[in-house]
Amino acid sequence: MLNQVADGVWVRQSEWVWSNAVVVRGDDGLVVVDPGIGGADLAELADDVDRLGIPVVAGFCTHPHWDHLLWHSRFGDVPRYATAACAQSAGEVRERARAMAEQSASGVPLDLVGLLTPLPAAGGVLPGEVVEHDAHAVGHAALLLADRGVLIAGDMLSDVLIPLFDPRRTGQPAAYATALDRLGEAARHVDVVIPGHGAVAVGPEVAARLEADRAYLDAVLAGGDPADARLEQDWLAGPHQANLAQVRG
């Protein structure tokens, strides 16, 4: 079910890697951010949206990984916005994303995966400010709703995921440092952070998330193993070693 975390901002979490779908009320209607994950989740999210009694006018995709490229026909044939770089990348990886969605989640409308519209340069189509960076994925972006004190962070600032470098690109440690600086500046205006995966951060937890990601990055750059509770999850051992390998070149 949708849980309201701020005025006109709701979150629904799926079981799959604690994935968060976000619904934002704008001036003209609702914006659905990163809906997922399986077909049942999408249908239940659509039920929740119907109960709000407000039309969906747009979608927003934070980055071009398959679990953030999903959609359901019940949300409507509306623009699904992303940064220009994200939209281009989504088009290039669409077939692979569809295959991964089919393999990893049941009942996903595969024909709707990755159909994105680049944000217009003039802006104004989404509530809030888009904060673009280059960490984790091409064209990754957060959505800052400063008037409501909320930052929708995509796959950043999670309590369950360590920083995950894009293994297909070089320069990710520097990109992460820049991204954390940008998100840290945005976070000065909020008291709620919604990550793509994990618990919503509220109040002092916002600064703690930034500190945890910076501490992880500093430790990896120094060539050591961070004292990070998130690494107690065995499945993150591989991504962590990939991060270390990229730092070592």
Rank of each mutant, 00 (worst) to 15 (best):
N3Y: 00
N3E: 15
S14C: 12
W16M: 10
V17I: 13
V17A: 08
N20Y: 14
N20K: 10
A21V: 00
V24R: 05
R25H: 10
V32S: 12
D34F: 00
P35Q: 07
P35V: 02
G36L: 12
G38T: 15
A43G: 05
D48N: 10
D50V: 14
V56R: 07
V56I: 13
G59T: 06
C61Q: 09
P64C: 14
H65G: 09
W71I: 11
P79V: 10
R98P: 10
A99G: 14
A99T: 05
A99R: 15
Q103L: 13
S104D: 03
A105H: 09
V108I: 03
P109Y: 04
D111Y: 00
D111Q: 08
V113N: 06
G114W: 00
L119D: 01
A121R: 04
G123S: 01
H136Q: 11
V138D: 11
G139C: 03
H140K: 03
L145V: 00
D147G: 07
V150S: 08
A153S: 13
A153W: 00
D155K: 06
L161K: 04
P163F: 06
R169D: 13
T170N: 09
P173M: 13
R182A: 15
G184Q: 06
E185C: 03
R188A: 14
D191C: 02
V193A: 09
P195N: 04
R209M: 11
E211H: 06
L217C: 08
V220A: 11
A222V: 06
G223F: 05
G224R: 06
A227K: 02
R230V: 01
D234A: 15
W235D: 13
H240I: 08
A242Q: 15
A242M: 14
N243I: 04
